[in-house]
């Protein structure tokens, strides 16, 4: 999917609608209401999380995927972490809070698609690690208009980390 971040910004009313989508979606994830969350996804959803490298200033920026899921893999991932019998990392579940800020939204060539950029701060504590830890990064989401609302067609989270400090990532960002 080609993403055009320099395209026309959305108007205020639409902006509020998109932000409301993001807040509601974050609420579902924080509550671990995965059924409601899955209903927000398009059938061809893609979900990527990337981490970065330190490079000399001037050298090409590099990042690489630590998650590169299509719909099949993403649904399996959710089936695992949402089921107490099938997950060790998420049983007991992590306690999480996702803060979504710095939202910008742009129309795309395809009228149905809106690119929504936001900053993500996800805080997570889990059994055995009571002090918790952060995942911080930039999201590029493509939201697709479907009837009366939106669905998430593509999420790309670029973390501002080169080494994941909290073990293997078992929550959705």
């Amino acid at each position: 999917m080609t993403i055009q971040s320099s395209a026309r910004p959305v108007d205020t009313l639409l902006y509020i609608e998109l932000q409301r989508f993001l807040f509601r979606e974050a609420k579902f994830l924080d509550r671990r209401d995965y059924q409601s969350w899955l209903a927000l996804l398009t059938d061809d959803v893609t979900y990527r999380v990337r981490i970065r490298s330190f490079r000399d200033s001037g050298a090409a920026e590099t990042d690489y995927a630590v998650v590169d899921d299509g719909p099949v893999e993403l649904r399996k991932r959710v089936a695992q972490i949402s089921n107490a019998r099938l997950s060790r990392a998420e049983n007991p579940p992590s306690l999480t809070r996702r803060l979504i800020t710095n939202v910008e939204a742009f129309h795309q060539a395809d009228e149905a698609d809106i690119l929504v950029e936001s900053s993500l701060l996800a805080f997570r504590t889990r059994s055995g690690i009571p002090e918790g830890g952060f995942y911080i990064g930039k999201r590029h989401d493509v939201l697709r208009r479907t009837g009366d609302g939106f669905q998430l067609a593509c999420r790309d989270v670029r973390l501002d980390q080169t080494v994941l400090l909290e073990g293997a990532l078992s929550i959705l960002l």
Binding site: V49, I51, V66, D68, R77, A89, R126, A168, L169, S170
Partner: peptide, 18 residues
């Protein structure tokens, strides 16, 4: 698929690490 299973967020890895 390799990273889906065995990467830093791998469905095998996350449970081992925990």
């Amino acid at each position: 698929k390799g990273i889906h299973n065995f990467g830093a967020a791998g469905v095998f890895e996350q449970d081992d690490v925990e």
